Simulated assay, not measured.
Amino acid sequence: MTCENVDFPALGQGPTGSAGQTGSAPPSERLHFVLSGDQPHRASEWADTPGRSLEEQLAEIAQEVTLRGEAAERRRQDEIEAARQKRIRWKAAMEEARVQYAESYRVRHFEAQEAAWRHATRLTRYVSAARTRVEAMPPGQTRTEAEAWISCATATVERLDPLNAPPRLPDIPEPRADDLKPFLGHWSPYGPTYRAPTPPDVPADLPSSSRKASPREHTSHPARPARSAR
């Protein structure tokens, strides 16, 4: 909020030769006061008029300055409170994102264990079938080498099978900002701000029936009339 004073005559140079006596001054020499900035409540400009001098309007100017200052302070306080509430919502979203990230990490851990168990189970059947074949082999160097392979394979499968150790919950690592993005919705992981949604990727090998046709593909061409045989 600023004040602009324009067209002030020099003191002692009024039309009557004394400062402040501007009632009969021409329009170009009358006092003019402009209050700019913020939303006006009553007025933004005051000037000398034939029936009322600018000095008589000083109380109105002071009141306008006060009203605008109070309104500006209310807006500032509202903005501070809005920012505080926004940060509270962001912190709550971050806490919920951490909970969802931990749950997602545990699910991925369980799925990896289940896949390792199925893999170890298939290898166990394979090693069992190989052991049956080796037991039927005659004694000799070949059987000795095959039995050594069976021992090595059995030990390997035992290490691969997650059920050979007591099950336990995984240790959740500290999530990075990118780890929390999938669980934050429109919130940014870096602070109480919003981020633009990421458009979904369209696979390059998407069938033509699923792709959005271009305007050229939608354009219909009138059929040419067939030439009449002469």
Rank of each mutant, 00 (worst) to 15 (best):
A93W: 08
A93V: 05
A93F: 11
A93L: 09
M94E: 11
M94W: 07
M94R: 09
E95S: 14
E95W: 03
E95P: 04
E96H: 12
E96Y: 07
E96V: 11
E96Q: 15
A97D: 02
R98S: 08
R98F: 09
V99R: 15
V99I: 15
Q100M: 12
Q100K: 13
Q100G: 06
Q100C: 10
Q100W: 05
Q100T: 14
Y101R: 01
A102I: 09
A102F: 01
A102W: 00
A102N: 07
A102H: 03
E103C: 09
S104K: 06
S104D: 15
S104V: 05
S104N: 15
Y105V: 05
Y105N: 03
Y105S: 04
Y105P: 00
Y105A: 05
R106F: 04
R106I: 14
V107M: 13
V107D: 13
V107S: 13
R108W: 08
F110L: 13
E111A: 14
E111K: 11
E111P: 01
E111D: 15
A112V: 11
A112N: 12
A112P: 01
Q113K: 12
Q113E: 14
Q113M: 13
Q113T: 05
Q113I: 04
A115V: 10
A115H: 10
A116M: 12
A116V: 06
A116I: 06
A116W: 03
W117M: 09
W117Y: 15
R118C: 05
R118M: 10
R118H: 13
R118T: 14
H119T: 15
A120Y: 02
A120C: 10
A120Q: 06
A120M: 10
T121G: 08
T121P: 01
T121H: 10
R122E: 12
R122Y: 08
R122K: 09
R122T: 02
R122Q: 11
L123R: 08
L123A: 12
L123E: 08
T124C: 03
T124R: 10
R125K: 10
R125G: 12
Y126D: 12
Y126M: 12
V127T: 04
V127H: 01
V127W: 00
S128T: 14
S128N: 11
A129C: 04
A129I: 05
A129K: 11
A129F: 07
A129W: 08
A130V: 06
A130T: 06
A130G: 05
R131C: 03
R131Y: 06
R131I: 03
T132L: 06
T132R: 08
T132Y: 02
T132K: 07
R133S: 08
V134K: 02
V134I: 05
V134G: 00
V134W: 00
V134F: 01
V134E: 00
V134Q: 02
E135T: 03
E135K: 11
A136I: 03
A136V: 03
A136T: 04
A136W: 01
A136L: 05
M137W: 02
M137H: 02
M137G: 02
M137P: 00
P138W: 08
P139H: 13
G140H: 01
G140S: 02
G140D: 01
Q141A: 13
Q141C: 06
